[in-house]
Write a protein that binds this DNA or RNA. Structure first.
Lengths: 340, 340
DNA sequence: AAGATTATGAGGTACGTAAATCAGAAATTT
DNA sequence: AAATTTCTGATTTACGTACCTCATAATCTT
């Protein structure tokens, strides 16, 4: 049988109350006694029954997700996944709050974090903006004993317990690799569109892409990066100019959002279609992949990210370890053949 | 507050005992009363507290994993993941048994299943061989109320509740797609090595690969498939002959195990190295990818598969729904750039 | 050494559900 | 209408842990 707290008490020769004090870090136990109890715990291999403990505590994990209210499909998917997780709350003993903040708005995010500091939940997941005002607030949350996870876009480590998202430098390199190899020695110009170079993840993707493409296809001419502010209309107009100005355009990499503009532009091209690589699988990009308009999609699964963040927050809130391999977010590569 | 069984009783105007009878499908409730209780459950949105229920039942889920004792790294990884899951048993209320059976041995597998039928656990996960003797035993298990999942290699649907593994036809197409595009218009011969065409998953991969490569690179000459029995030495000797007999060999796809032979052969090639695509990420294939000996690895994550199978088995054992999106096993594509 | 302080023990209740018993009500059969 | 059978209610115990109170033992202060 699985050992219980009673077994610890018997083994250590103390009462249940003392075991409880040790287990739950309550005061009033001499160091020597505490060690005896801990030794007994190790010896008999006691593992706290989390279900019973939660039941006894009537514990529900209050978790807050702070996500920008951007209208791009990735952020939308992220919010939908939070909503779905919210519905599972009764089963999973979570009470999830979704806090939508204006996109790219440091002050708005800071304000949302201040509200959380005033009324701290057990855990907070934030799509962070890397700025001192945000960093310091995240540290305050952690100091208050709140489990803190950054989502999608990271911060300096002191501001969070864990980052749930992909390695964007590697994502850029992957895009560069695919672009270079799919081009198969052809020469010409390649265009890159970012949302904004003020975003760390976009900067990382660009750097990785340029580095890797330069290695594999040194003869390809990489055009100056264009910024779309993640706006589909702007993506489209930027591409229109690029097609006009560079008749030898053989590849396009959209490393930010606004894929609607990319697809619209590609579906209008006459002559040979350029290779296209973009991020985030959505109904739109999925269809473009199936239709052959886009050649590859790099993806981070929003469902995985939200569920992973919840697991990590619950574990940190309980002071339990995390299965690292399970919580690493993959850079998925999708071709039309391996669509899920 | 979350509604409890007491709330149901009050709402339906019956006693707790009757609610319990309805909830746990015990006899002794008139149809009319049962409906009243069920209506009350719907009305107040009751969700059974699984943790409390398990606590009350002192339930642990006895789960058996039946996995071939092949020495290839994928099956090894699968067994390791089961062992790891076994250690988490105390936390997750599972009692996991790993049953290793001889590889490719229908009679041995049938015998292992018979033992399980005689002493049925709550759930069984099997790396199945698609044969009538196996199929019928799986059906017997299901009829006995055991949750049944096929692992890696599937069976007809009547023999299992769920399949935990990848779509191998799609995996083959993905390999064909990558091969075709990476070749970038070059012409020559492409070799394919399977473990055994008696295995359904290997047949599927081959079919998908041939189909897709033919579309993308019609000028490429696909050599007759060779069978390695998943033996590294045989993979190597087959490749040696292929290199000798076909000087224009420009691509190799190993769709089964035995990658050690593939890597050994590739590292000895003189002149231009052929494109190489293989399955399953391991320390060996990872290194080969990093060194540029292999160009792409298709992968199914053994950790995900085992954890998914456990979640599914527990859910089926409780008659709970499964989050389908979470349990779909991805066909991962790894290049040297997006290695985890 | 008396008093103050800190450790520990003993015992209980609570969490939400499962499962059992036994008594009594209602429906069905004879 | 009586005897059976089938439902239903009321109540209790158990699961493993958390957390509370009260009493007493051990240790430290002055």
């Amino acid at each position: 049988m699985k050992p219980t707290v009673h077994d610890i008490a018997r083994e250590a020769g103390v009462s249940l109350a003392t075991v409880d004090r040790v287990l739950n870090r309550r005061p009033g136990v001499r160091a020597a006694t505490r060690e005896r109890v801990e030794a007994a715990i190790d010896r008999i291999g006691f593992v706290r029954d989390v279900a019973a403990a939660n039941l006894a505590k009537s514990r529900t994990y209050a978790l807050a997700f702070v996500i920008p209210e951007s209208d791009n499909s990735f952020m939308q998917a992220l919010r939908d996944e939070v909503a779905a997780a919210r519905l599972r709350g009764a089963l999973e003993r979570t009470d999830i709050t979704l806090i939508a903040v204006p996109a790219f708005d440091e002050a708005g995010l800071a304000q949302a974090l201040d509200a959380l500091i005033a009324n701290p939940p057990a855990g907070v997941a934030v799509v962070a903006i890397d700025a001192p005002a945000i960093q310091s607030r995240m540290e305050r949350l952690r100091d208050a004993g709140v489990a803190v996870v950054t989502l999608v876009s990271d911060l300096a480590a002191s501001g969070r317990d864990h980052f749930t998202g992909i390695d964007n430098l590697a994502a850029g390199r992957t895009a560069g690799s695919l672009m270079g190899r799919f081009l198969g020695g052809r020469t010409g110009a390649v265009a890159v569109i970012a949302g904004s170079l003020r975003l760390g993840d976009h900067r990382d993707r660009l750097a990785g892409f340029a580095e890797r493409l330069g290695q594999i296809a040194p003869d390809v001419r990489l055009l100056d990066v264009m910024e779309s502010q993640d706006d589909p209309a702007r993506v489209k107009s930027l591409l229109t100019s690029a097609f006009r100005d560079h008749p030898d355009l053989i590849g396009v990499y959209n490393l930010g959002a606004g894929n609607r503009g990319l697809v619209a532009s590609l579906s209008q091209t006459t002559g040979e279609r350029p290779l296209a690589i973009a991020h985030e699988l959505s109904p739109l990009t999925r269809k473009a992949l199936e239709d052959g308009l886009i050649d590859a999609i790099l993806n981070q699964d929003p469902g995985h990210e939200i569920r992973s963040a919840i697991r990590v927050l619950k574990a940190r809130a309980d002071g339990l370890p995390v299965i690292a391999a399970q919580e690493r977010i993959r850079i998925d590569i999708f071709l039309k053949d391996n669509l899920p």
